[in-house]
Structure formats: structure tokens, C-alpha cells
Design a protein around this nucleic acid. Structure first.
Lengths: 258, 258
DNA sequence: GGTTGCTCTGAGAACCTTCTGAACGGAGGG
DNA sequence: CCCTCCGTTCAGAAGGTTCTCAGAGCAACC
């Protein structure tokens, strides 16, 4: 039987939860990241500095670590080494400021790890983490980096989207918005929800941007075709097919009765 | 024999009650919310301020918390953290004033929690809570976000309603009214009852609106078909099928493919 | 340095929703 | 049978939501 979460990519194939350690000195950030990961089915521990991260790395034995590069006590590189000693196969996703990037991180991540620059969106972190776990063979079978709904197909790795076989060019934000929609097909998502997932956590703007980007997306994806993105007035937006009863087994949707 | 409550979505699959802690400094509100939740089969505790909420969070061990963001003593965020420390997996539904949304709430809720702005309707709070518990895997098996009565089907997540396979477009209020009816099939609901559940608690209008919305609903759902919404003169409205004795064992209608 | 593309803001129009008031018609009691 | 009450429906005002356009600011790239 399928779980409610249409694509529980952060669980192992056998359903057991992936263990993630989140390390950052900003409490708000670890709170939000932790909650988001838990809602994806992960088991989560948080740590505010390098030494407690290392401690948790030993006791908690995480499968993946989300690690701020700038910690109050220990240098990021040292934390990384310490974690690797304790659990050699662990995936690491770095969080860094935009400017402090290229030089060092690039070298580190060559080994298969990845990084995200602050400020990031939740979707971005989750997507990278999914990618890491997938590549390390922790989670899913190959081919799982493709999302599909009706004749709409998204290749997350290639960042390629097509509708009815025809390639559609999307900007970064459009892509992330669509990915969020495609990960939650047939489920109404409020503008606030979308804003919090797809836009960076420091974005001060209003929900109006979401409307704007939905309109962009519609122009590229729904134009002249049977629409997939629907407005639910006063509530939000849904990705769903136009006709047919609610029970129709839409691809990417869930089977009508298990 | 089935219980009166046709769809005890706020019970666990095994029938044991979900434990909910309601925190608000307005006594009227906790009373009403508490009563509504109990009538849904929950075990309820209430608290009027942050410190007693934290206390209850430890002793009562709730599965979900309905938490006012503005409390007299402790900051909402601090209460949240305290609760999370005591029970990491607890679902939280925030109550907030409409304007106070932006700041922190949105960020917090990105993790999987949810919020409702005051003034809210009871149905809205209950629906969100059901959604939270469902997504956290606390309550039901997948596919439970669908209500059915006769050939009338409602998908709560997609906010889609169909009668006899034909999709019906409903406004927000129409949808909530129908949901309330569908959650209480074959049971007469008074106009006052409906008003208190479906409309916001500060709504000053009269029961005439209910009549109006019932007529809207009939036009969309019953038009030209065997009627499902029936008037009980001097009392209220019922959702029931035209024929068949009252003793027929069809409470809640049957699931489309159960 | 110029070009290009992306992101976001603001304003306006079009649309939908909600609710009020009033007219109409049937049910049921006397 | 008539009268009264209750319920239904219509029409319209008021308000809110969403879509779209145009343009400014910014960054990346040539």
C-alpha cells in the first residue's frame, strides 16, 4: 500500500527512516530544517556547534549530515573529518554563505558531497539531500529522479522538463515551484505553503509572487493544452487533471483504492 | 455496530483516542474547541498560558497541540520548542491573528505544522488537525482523505467534489458546508449547529445564510438528480438518500471500492 | 560596457464570493 | 379553507481574490 506522501524519497526502500543530523548555530534554522525533514519521514537530531555535532555523529550514527560550514567552535573541515572517521559512508550537505564558496567547498564536495548557499529554500535543501542519498545508494532504485504527472515529465538530475514530449525551458524558480507541485500532485497547496518551501527563508515578499510565477508556469506548461495547474480560490493551487472522476487512476496520482 | 460518529478521523486506526492539548487564553475558545474535539472522539486537555501548556505537554503527552501564538506569559516560539523537546513528533496547529502571520509563523509551519488565522470556523480547525494527524501517520491509512455518500464523492486534499463521476465546482463556503454534511450523513443538523461549525465564530449574520447556501449546494449537487440534501421543516437539514428504510446499514455511505 | 535574462513590485481590470433584502410559494395549524 | 410561518430563490451591492501587464533592479555573461 502506498503511503500518503506520494514520493517518500527520504525513506529507505524498506520504509525505515533515514537518520539525519542537522548542524547549525542558528536555532531557527535547525528548527525549521528539522521539522521539514521529520515531515518527510526522517529521524532527526540537531546540534548547534562542532563538538556536539561530533558527539552526535558517534551516538546517533546518521546516514546524512546537513552541516553549516561556519560554526562557532570548530572549523568545518575538522568537523567533516571527525564525522568521516566515525562513519565513513555518511553523506554531507554543506550550508555556506554565498561568498565563502568556491575555493574550499568545491574541493571538498568533489568527493560526492554537495553544498547549498545561504539563503536557501527548503525545497533546495531537500532536493540536494535526496540527490545525495540517492547517489550513495541509501534510498531508492535508479530512475527515481524522474517525476511524472499525466504527460508532464521532470528529470530532476538533468533539470529538464517536458510536456507531451516537448521540452519546456524553465527558470530556476519556475523549476522549483513546479517540482514542489509535482511532488504533491492532487493536493491543494496554499500560497503560504509554497512561499515557505520554494522561496528562501529570508524572503520578505508577499504571496503575490506565487501568483506571478504560477502564471509564468501556466504560460509555459498549460498554454493551449488541457490545464494541469488549477486555482482553488481562497485556498491555493493544485496539480491535477481536468476531467474524469476523482477515482480515475491518474499517473502520478494514487491508485483509487490501494 | 457502527458508532454514531460516522468518520472518527480523530481516532487512531485501532480506535484509541487521539490526545489533543488546546492552548489559548480565551476561555470561551478553549471550551468550544475542547467540546468539538471531544465530540470527535479525542481526549482533550486545555491550558490558558504557556507555562501550563508546557506542564501539560510533559504530563499529558499529547499527539497534537492547538496553540495560540499570542499567550500572556511565554512567547509562542518558546512554547513550541518546549513542547518539541518533550515530544519531538507532536503535531502543532497554530492560531494567530490575521496580520501577525508573516513574521515567524510562516517559517515554523514550513516544517509540516499548520496554522489557522482568527477568526476561524470550527470545521476549519478540525479539518486542518485531521490533515496534520493524517500526514504525520498518526491516524489513518492512506486514501482517507476521501469522503463518500451514495454517488457523491469528496476529495478533501484535492478539494474536489463529484456527483456520479461528474466534477462539481464549489466555492469555499459551499465546500465546507458540504463537508460538514458529509461528515454527518443521515443525521439532522440544525441551522444553528451548521452556523456554529461552518461559519467563523464571530459571524454576526442570521441563519438565513445557511438556507441560501443550502440552495446553492442543491443547485450544484442535486439538480436533476435524486436529492441527497433534505429539509426537515422546523429543525434543519439532513444528507440522506431518497429511498430505502432508515434501518438500511449504509452509514456514511459506502466507500467507492471498500 | 552592453546585453540578456531573471526576479520582484505595483497597479488595474476582471472575476468570483459572500451576504442582505425582498418576493414568492408551499406546509401545516386552526 | 385561510392564514401564518418557514423555506426557497432572485437580484444586487460590497468586498475580496486572482490574473496580467509593464517596468525597475540585479546578476551573469559575453
Amino acid at each position: 500500500m502506498r503511503d500518503l506522501t506520494p514520493l517518500p524519497a527520504l525513506n529507505r526502500p524498506d520504509g525505515s527512516p533515514v537518520r539525519v543530523l542537522v548542524v547549525d548555530d542558528e536555532r531557527d534554522l535547525t528548527d525549521v530544517l528539522g521539522a521539514a525533514l521529520r515531515s518527510e519521514g526522517c529521524e532527526v537530531r540537531t546540534a548547534a556547534d562542532g563538538s556536539s555535532a561530533l558527539e552526535a555523529g558517534g551516538a546517533f550514527r546518521p546516514d546524512a549530515v546537513v552541516l553549516d560550514w561556519m560554526l562557532p567552535d570548530i572549523d568545518g573541515l575538522a568537523v567533516l573529518r571527525g564525522l568521516r572517521e566515525r562513519s565513513p559512508g555518511v553523506c554531507v550537505l554543506f550550508l555556506t554563505a554565498r561568498d565563502a564558496v568556491e575555493d574550499r567547498i568545491a574541493g571538498i564536495t568533489a568527493g560526492g558531497d554537495d553544498y547549498v548557499t545561504k539563503p536557501f529554500s527548503l525545497e533546495e535543501v531537500l532536493a540536494r539531500l535526496r540527490g545525495l542519498l540517492r547517489r550513495s545508494g541509501m534510498t531508492h532504485a535508479p530512475g527515481d529522479h524522474r517525476l511524472a504527472f499525466a504527460d508532464l515529465v521532470m528529470d530532476e538530475e538533468a533539470r529538464e522538463v517536458s510536456r507531451g514530449g516537448e521540452i519546456v525551458e524553465l527558470s530556476r524558480t519556475e523549476f522549483e515551484l513546479l517540482r514542489y507541485l509535482m511532488r504533491n500532485p492532487r493536493r491543494v497547496l496554499s500560497k503560504d505553503q509554497i512561499l515557505q518551501r520554494v522561496w528562501s527563508y529570508d524572503f520578505g515578499g508577499r504571496a503575490h509572487v506565487v501568483e506571478l510565477y504560477v502564471s509564468y508556469l501556466r504560460k509555459k506548461i498549460d498554454a493551449g493544452r488541457s490545464p494541469l495547474i488549477h486555482t482553488v480560490r481562497g485556498v491555493g493551487y493544485v496539480l491535477k487533471q481536468d476531467r474524469g472522476p476523482a477515482s480515475e487512476p491518474a499517473p502520478g496520482g494514487e491508485p483509487p483504492c490501494g
